[in-house]
Design a binder for these strands. Structure first.
Length: 584
RNA sequence: GGGCGCAUAGUGUAGUGGAUAUCACGCUGGCCUUCUAAGCCGGCAACCGGGGUUCGAAUCCCCGUGUGCCCGCCA
């Protein structure tokens, strides 16, 4: 509870001074209790016991009695088991939120943030594994915006090098018949008729086919390396050919992401840094590093053995023997450029990039360029094993979305509400997209998980529809009250009675601030997911216990609490990419 | 061979030094003539093993086990 902490901190600091205790010894004395039903904040006195050589139970008593006259009367202080517990008066919270327009994050420092996410090679449709990146990244974008940061959501487009090269070669050299034959021989399924007009699904087959035949055809390999080399030298005609090859795929991928509400503010292509010359000058700068080394064929690297890198190879190559650059080198130039656009950088990367990212960070240090923050996530596996676009062992996002929409529609029909077709379609789309996002977001990013259809399709408690449902309920109340031509009156908080459910809800509403801030500080959207589930649960209990409309009369206080909740759930949904429906 | 993640009820998860370990599915007992039951209120059930640091460890350190990822002049 940030607001309470701000109210307590000066008094606690004053007290520490009186006791002659260095504030810095105790990293942070005021803590959030593990169990929020005990109190809002607490001070465990065990660490102090050692310094003061006194029983923690007594210290707690001393602290509480000397704090009491330093704090406003709305803060209740009690002691228990060697803890000093603080509780903020519920009426105080109610007044702050409902009448005084208390603004969240007003005392927090804001940033300009550039979040680079997804950046998947444009060689095929999104599968569930790749989508974890986009969903996490987009959630961080939204959470940062809700916090008040200015955010650029950026996609780094791989428009050169091997992967696009293979694609471009295939589109130029293989016919549809060739592709179908090659893939059939490998046992890769034919194109799903649903996506017969979607270019990412079509063109990926050329990419897959080329990957199969190039393995035992030296001529193809030769043509490919010629093509790739030219792209890496910035050859305009080759780059433009590459662009024509992947652009329709990228558009298909973006279409898929837009179904999940994911959008970008800018796209940066990798070739930019070859063309503008920064890659070359960076390679020259790296040669001045103390870590610099040269291989027999003239390739250049940094030796990272002394920098905490170990394994079969500790070398970080930044230039090939033929003088061309590598992906990671271009990444260095890219980071340099990103820093000109924001004061904080966040990259969303798969766990396979952990080493690479470390190497890039060390190289950036050598170049005296700041390091980005990185959110790593683990892969989503299939029960059959790893997902791979190349091998066709994937669950496509397009299929998952379609299935989820069907499932949602089925549930809507089962419930038998009279919702007209157009509206149920809208609801099913919103439910599907929100549920898919939430099911990925709620799990801690570093935890790998196995994709199971039944889990991905879960619309029960612990899912986005659960939160959406609470929002819809609050909207329904709002609608009913408005129909009553209700007039707002001022509330005398000294007289209002707040029951347990309403009090719990109000405390939870206040913690929106803490939870969201923690989530963006640690780059972990799952924290805020947990909070939103709790908020919805608390709203549901409130909804049951606190009647708002009774015999055409509106309980003004309860209505205000409901309205505040409605708006806050809406904001929270937006911050996670859940679509807050008015009815469902 | 080396490095880096991860390990919590039957299952999936939250929790990065503090009070009785979270939530959900599951199993189970209640609640719809009353503001949307996609809901609410109860019950059952867990910190991988072994050492260590600490007043205090699921959390930090070491050893082991299991599991994922990486160690390319690919991206």
């Amino acid at each position: 509870m940030n607001i309470l902490k701000r109210l307590i901190t000066p008094a606690v600091n004053e007290l520490l001074e009186e006791l002659n205790i260095d504030k810095n010894i105790l990293d942070d004395l005021i803590e959030k209790p593990r169990d929020l039903t005990v109190c809002d904040l607490c001070i465990p006195c065990f660490a102090l016991a050692k310094i003061l050589k006194k029983n923690p139970v007594e210290i707690a008593k001393d602290i509480s009695s000397s704090l009491k006259n330093k704090l406003i009367p709305e803060i209740f202080v009690i002691t228990k088991n060697g803890y000093v517990n603080f509780n903020l008066d519920t009426k105080f919270i109610a007044k702050k939120l409902l009448d005084e327009n208390y603004e969240f994050f007003q005392n927090s420092i804001k940033n300009d943030v550039l979040i680079e996410h997804t950046s998947a090679n444009p060689n095929g449709p999104f599968h569930v594994g790749r989508a974890r990146n986009a969903i996490l990244g987009d959630a961080l974008v939204r959470l940062n915006r809700e916090f008040g940061n200015k955010v650029i959501a950026e996609y780094y487009v791989d428009d050169m090098g091997k992967q696009v090269g293979i694609l471009a070669w295939a589109l130029e050299n293989l016919t549809e018949k060739d592709v179908d034959e090659i893939l059939e021989n490998e046992g890769i399924e034919s194109l799903n008729p649903t996506w017969i007009n979607k270019e990412d699904h079509i063109r990926v087959r050329w990419y897959q086919a080329a990957n199969i035949i190039r393995k035992d055809d030296k001529k193809i390999e030769l043509e490919l390396s010629e093509l790739i080399k030219k792209s890496e030298e910035g050859d305009e005609s080759v780059l433009s050919k590459f662009n024509d090859s992947f652009k329709p795929i990228l558009n298909g991928m973006l279409e898929t992401l837009s179904k999940l509400g994911i959008k970008y503010d800018s796209f940066t292509t990798e070739s930019k840094f070859i063309i503008n010359g920064r890659v070359n000058s960076i390679m020259e700068e790296l040669k001045k590093s103390k870590l610099y080394g040269k291989a027999e064929n003239g390739a250049n690297y940094l030796e990272l053995a002394g920098k905490g890198v170990s394994g079969k190879s500790t070398k970080f190559f930044f230039q090939r023997g033929d003088g061309s650059s590598l992906y990671a080198t271009r990444d260095l130039a890219y980071h340099e450029w990103k820093w000109t656009r924001a004061s904080k950088l966040i990259n969303i990367l798969g766990e396979d990039h952990r080493l690479q990212s470390k190497q890039v960070s060390i190289a950036l240090e050598e170049l005296k360029i700041k390091k980005p923050e990185v959110l790593f996530y683990s892969f989503i596996k299939l029960p059959e094993g790893k997902m791979s676009t190349r091998r066709g062992n994937v669950v496509f996002m397009d299929d998952l979305i379609a299935e989820a929409e069907n499932m949602a529609m089925k549930i809507i029909n089962q419930r038998g509400h009279n919702i007209e077709d157009k509206r149920s379609l809208e609801i099913s789309k919103a439910v599907a997209s929100s549920a898919i996002r939430f099911n990925i977001l709620k799990v801690s990013p570093e935890k790998g998980f196995t994709f199971k259809w039944e889990d991905a399709m879960s619309f029960d408690a612990d899912s986005a529809p659960f939160i959406m449902y609470s929002h819809a309920r609050s909207c329904s109340i709002n609608k009913k009250v408005n129909e009553l031509k209700f007039e707002e009156i001022n509330i005398d908080y000294s007289k209002v009675e707040i029951n347990k459910s309403a009090a719990n809800l109000l405390r939870t509403l206040m913690r929106f601030e803490d939870s969201l801030e923690k989530s963006i500080t640690e780059n972990k959207p799952n924290h805020f997911c947990t909070f939103m589930l709790e908020l919805a649960t608390k709203y549901n209990s409130f909804y049951r216990d606190c009647i708002i409309i009774e015999n055409q009369n509106v309980n003004v206080f309860h209505y205000k609490v409901s309205e505040y909740s409605r708006k806050l759930i809406y904001r929270g949904c937006n911050a996670l990419g859940i679509i807050p429906l008015v009815s469902m």
